[in-house]
């Protein structure tokens, strides 16, 4: 997110805290894709990902007045989404054994940004591979990997979001990357 976007988000958060629902709606629109991407990679289920994203924003709206640091809205939102997703995964722990067929079906729900059929196919394959790899990680490791690799957050921010010690967060990430290397070798990924 560039600085101009951050300023807009800060402004909208201030308005929304004052009860401005239109401002909050704009925030939802700005952040929805980011939240869905997180919940989808975590749950690997489109409907659940959408439900969790909606619940995240509703919870954010309800608790907005208790939130003080407008500049850190994105992190706060990720924290809500992470907590909701981890709770969901605890209740649906059988998801760990997601089959590749199921992953294929889920990825079809995501529409490619490209109009080129070949590129679309390539993107689908990438999505499927990523979801397959993510499915091999325990919930906490997957969350840390996602927040670090895809959301490009610092370990300190991830520690704050997950409520884990900095050392634990780094360990989760290290282990996830070691598993990724093994997965890549197994899949014979080449540059």
């Amino acid at each position: 997110m560039v600085n101009a976007d951050l300023e807009i988000v800060e402004y909208l958060v201030r308005r929304a805290k004052g009860g401005d629902k239109a401002a909050f709606s704009r925030l939802v629109r700005l952040m929805m894709k980011n939240v869905v991407a997180l919940t989808f990679r975590m749950t690997q289920n489109r409907d659940s990902a959408y439900d969790l994203a909606q619940e995240t924003f509703i919870s954010a709206w309800e608790n907005l007045r208790s939130f003080r640091e407008e500049a850190r809205f994105k992190g706060w939102l990720y924290r809500i989404a992470s907590n909701k997703t981890l709770n969901y995964l605890k209740l649906h722990s059988t998801r760990q054994v997601t089959s590749l067929d199921a992953v294929k079906t889920e990825t079809l729900a995501l529409v490619s940004s490209s109009q080129d059929p070949e590129h679309q196919l390539h993107e689908k394959e990438m999505q499927r591979d990523v979801l397959e790899f993510m499915a091999t990680l325990p919930d906490q490791q997957r969350l840390v990997f996602d927040l670090r690799f895809y959301k490009e957050l610092m370990f300190e921010e991830i520690a704050e979001i997950t409520g884990k010690a900095l050392g634990t967060v780094k360990t989760h990430y290290r282990q996830a990357v070691i598993k990724l290397r093994a997965f890549a070798k197994q899949k014979e990924w080449r540059q």
Binding site: V36, F149, Y150, W189, Q191
Partner: peptide, 16 residues
Amino acid sequence: TGVSGKLGADDLFFPD
């Protein structure tokens, strides 16, 4: 770095 390139970015999973 090669493996990283296979993972795409956040927007690979954005809804339309």
